[in-house]
Computed example of a mutant assay.
Amino acid sequence: MKDWWQETFPRGRQSLIISDVHGYPVQIAYGEKGTGKPLFLLHGMGSWSYNWRYSVAPLSKYFRVICVDSKGFGFSEKPCLRREQSGHQVIELERIIQQLCDEPAVIVSESLGALIALALAQKNPQLVGRLVVINAPIFADKLPHWAMSILSQMPIELLQTIDSLRLAYLFSPIVREIMAIERRKVLFDPSILTQEDVYWITYPFVEIPGTLVKVAEDLQIAAKEIENLQANKPNMLTQIQKRLSEIDCPTLILWGDKDSWFPASHGEKLHQQLPNSQFQILENCCHDASTGAAKVVNQAILKFLQQTDFW
């Protein structure tokens, strides 16, 4: 199997070192292609840069496209001796952008990545020139998938044991098949998911120890945030929701009309609360829009950036 990073980016997979929320150095994997103004592609929960495989080439004709694996995901470092805390992704994304570019960037973000991007636009608006959010869990009231719920309740020590014994690697055919079945469920046309796609989507879980633990940690944080939201206790979701009106950069909201995780009504509600936003429904699209509606997504991004004079 050809290396996806080498096939996709002129310099293959690159890395940079940032300080994480605890102040420790952590290695972040990324790839970039094209020239011009910077455009970041942010993946969702359990995914990595490969989710944007259909967007890198089309968007890099006009922009310096940068795909980033969040800490703990994909090929980025997985510091398993330090437990994560709520909001760590926002701080880490801020530091990644500050290292990689010296001007406001376009942030194109999906699912959890979209929530992080919204929070960053509130925390440090100078970094964000334009914002594109896709199927964002901004009004989530539960974890949307059964596997997420299971991982959010499992003891981290047990998952560390599973990782250390390389059980995902030993049972890789089963792991790949289960993940393929579940990934197809978030696609309007499941047949577009190839065997090569399944190989790369599952690669970090099968081949890179620590992936399962770090994903579970972030899921446990998400579950706690939702629990606190429902109990009217302090939580990050409420903080982001209350400050949506502060985001004044031009924003494009894209939402799959068949998204069973977060309904399109959430996108309309987000649009109503973002003063400088546009809203577009993606027809015949489920949650995985970057794969299932890639052509329409790419066209919408370019049209939006042209309309808002970000060239």
Rank of each mutant, 00 (worst) to 15 (best):
N228S: 13
N235P: 02
N232Y: 06
A222V: 04
M236G: 00
Q239H: 15
Q230F: 12
T238P: 00
N232F: 08
T238D: 07
L237W: 08
I247K: 11
N228A: 07
M236A: 10
L244V: 06
Q239L: 15
E246P: 00
N232M: 02
M236K: 04
E227A: 14
T251L: 09
T238Q: 08
N232T: 09
T251N: 03
I253F: 10
T238M: 07
N228P: 06
L244F: 03
I240K: 09
R243C: 10
P234G: 04
Q220S: 11
N228F: 07
I253C: 01
C249P: 05
D218I: 01
K233G: 00
Q230C: 10
E246Y: 01
T238W: 00
D218P: 05
D218K: 08
P250T: 04
L237H: 10
R243W: 01
I240M: 08
Q239I: 06
L244D: 08
P250S: 11
D248F: 01
P250G: 13
E225I: 10
Q230V: 07
P234C: 05
E225K: 05
C249D: 02
C249M: 14
L237G: 05
N235R: 02
E246T: 07
T251S: 11
K242H: 10
E227I: 06
K242I: 06
N232I: 00
L237P: 03
L229A: 13
L254T: 01
E246Q: 11
N235E: 02
R243V: 00
K233Y: 09
A223N: 14
S245Q: 11
T238E: 05
N232W: 05
I247Y: 08
M236D: 09
A231R: 12
Q241H: 12
K224R: 14
E227K: 14
E227D: 12
D248A: 02
D248E: 13
E227Q: 14
T251G: 06
E246M: 05
T251D: 00
